[in-house]
Amino acid sequence: MNLSLHNISPKYISVGERSEIWGREFEINSSDHLQVVAPSGSGKTSLIHFIYGIRNDYEGRILIEGRDIKSISHEKKGILRREKISIVFQDLKLFEDRTAFENIEVKRKLNPYHNEDEITAMAKRLGVTSKLSQIIRTCSYGEQQRIAIIRALMQPFELLLLDEPFSHLDEENRQKAFELISEECSKRNAAMLLADLKRSSFLENEKTLSL
């Protein structure tokens, strides 16, 4: 998996000279772990959405394995999202009126990397086993965040995009979640791009860029 960004900058915000991403060139390859750190409103979510192919309102080019993401059809984007790129959205994007289990299962069934039992195993590790049968809107945001993380780990991927995935977790749960994510990335030899408000202690030895 090779992801390269060429001089991209959002059309709707003025880009500061000190940014290490906007207007610059950089790439991510298999097993790379990259941390993007920036305060609120500086475009972290936009960057994640540009790479995931949800938004096109930027200048420059984003190439996934040499192909401009803007030129990829809806159908091919679907394949990318099933096989190559997984994501934990900042706003989680869960089905509000379905149970936690159903939310995970709807992703797992699409292209199963793990069997159904692994859902329970991961939920146990993250302390949300009892929440699996609960309607998602009745779970706390922190619980929902952990369900969204488990959902993202159910499929095969070569790049994992994480948009403030631990924002509502305490330190202990952050640690557990990060360990699980790290293990799953290693299993797949996948790259990880973590966008957060501040530098994470888990990735202190990895490359960190600020927006």
């Binding site: 809806h74 679907g78 394949i79 099933r82 994007k93 089905f95 709807v106 499929q155």
Partner: peptide
């Protein structure tokens, strides 16, 4: 909303 989410998760539009 649900269709949009399914598409975001990687469901094929076809």
């Amino acid at each position: 909303d649900n269709i949009r989410l399914l598409l975001l998760l990687g469901y094929s539009p076809k």
